[in-house]
């Protein structure tokens, strides 16, 4: 980074520290914070969407659909997320490539030969020839999708409960005004359910934050991966040899997670107050009294 860093083994003290903390690997470490935030930013709405679909399906009057929605939530939530992450990504990747192979390959032989999974070159996702950035993007997308499936199951449960919590009288009134089922759903149920869903969803968000250390299982190099990699003791084979410093890196992560949680708590508390406005709940009542 700096000219002074050309020969790291000759420098000492503060210069050494400055060079060390700006090494290419540290830059990757800092960037991985952005990766984690980006993943959270994409996963949260995706999981919410899957949860919404799951909850809507579970409420459906059509039995198979309702069973599908409930089964999805029950099964995925019954399994520790870590176990799910350990085999699901590979399965998902193979599944996608198998489906693609049906469309693009001439040879439709069964791709699972023993433990080996073999489809034609054209069916690879992304193609073997694609640049590394596509492989990374694809890996990231798989990770996002896997996270979204797991947390979507939790969200489905919260939203299902929230939909049930909207006062029945409201829905009946809407029907009395001649709204169709779809209209009741869109105009009455969905806008009102959020206030009931928010406590559960806030918790889910907190959980999601704290599940990000599992990202490295999905092949995404996240902050924990880099902290472990940078902190481990380094021999002279490295430019900046040092003893085992994992403790310091992990303490840094601890501070990061605590700050992130704190900020989230503050934002969610405000959002909760905002959503409670004008609602027929204890929270809304408190707001009304405070204003009066």
């Amino acid at each position: 980074m700096f000219a002074a860093c050309a020969d790291p083994k000759a420098i000492e003290g503060l210069t050494w520290a400055a060079c060390y903390l700006t090494s290419g690997k540290h830059i990757d470490f800092y960037l991985s914070f952005a990766t984690v935030l980006l993943l959270l930013a994409i996963t949260a709405p995706t999981a919410l969407a899957m949860g919404f679909a799951g909850a809507t399906a579970a409420r459906s009057r059509f039995l198979p659909l309702s069973l599908l929605g409930k089964g999805y939530a029950a099964i995925v939530r019954g399994v520790p997320d870590i176990v799910f992450f350990l085999f699901f990504v590979i399965a998902l990747d193979q599944g996608i490539e198998y489906l693609k192979s049906l469309a693009v390959c001439d040879d439709h032989s069964w791709p699972w030969q023993g433990l080996e999974f073999r489809v034609c070159q054209e069916a690879k996702v992304p193609l073997g020839a694609s640049s590394a950035i596509w492989h990374q993007a694809y890996g990231f997308a798989l990770a996002v999708f896997t996270f979204a499936i797991v947390f979507g199951a939790f969200a489905a449960n919260v939203l299902y409960g929230a939909m049930g919590a909207v006062p029945k009288a409201q829905l009946e009134t809407a029907e009395a005004y001649g709204m169709s089922q779809a209209q009741v759903f869109r105009r009455i149920l969905v806008p009102q359910m959020w206030v009931y869903a928010l406590p559960g969803l806030s918790n889910l968000w907190m959980i999601l934050i704290k599940a990000t250390p599992l990202l490295f299982l999905l092949g995404v190099k996240d902050i924990v991966y880099w902290a472990r990699e940078l902190g481990g003791s380094k021999t002279q084979a490295y430019e900046y040899p040092h003893p085992d410093w994992r403790l310091w890196y992990f303490l840094g992560l601890l501070v990061f997670y605590l700050c992130f949680t704190k900020v989230s708590e503050v934002v969610l508390a405000r959002l909760s107050a905002r959503l409670s406005r004008g609602q027929a709940t204890a929270g809304g009542e408190a707001l009304r009294k405070a204003a009066a």
Binding site: P8, S23, G24, K25, I27, D28, E229, T235, A237, Y238, E239, Y240
Partner: peptide, 11 residues
């Protein structure tokens, strides 16, 4: 290391 490792440049 020394078989394979990520060096300080991140490679």
């Amino acid at each position: 290391p020394p078989f394979n490792f990520i060096n300080d440049a991140g490679e």
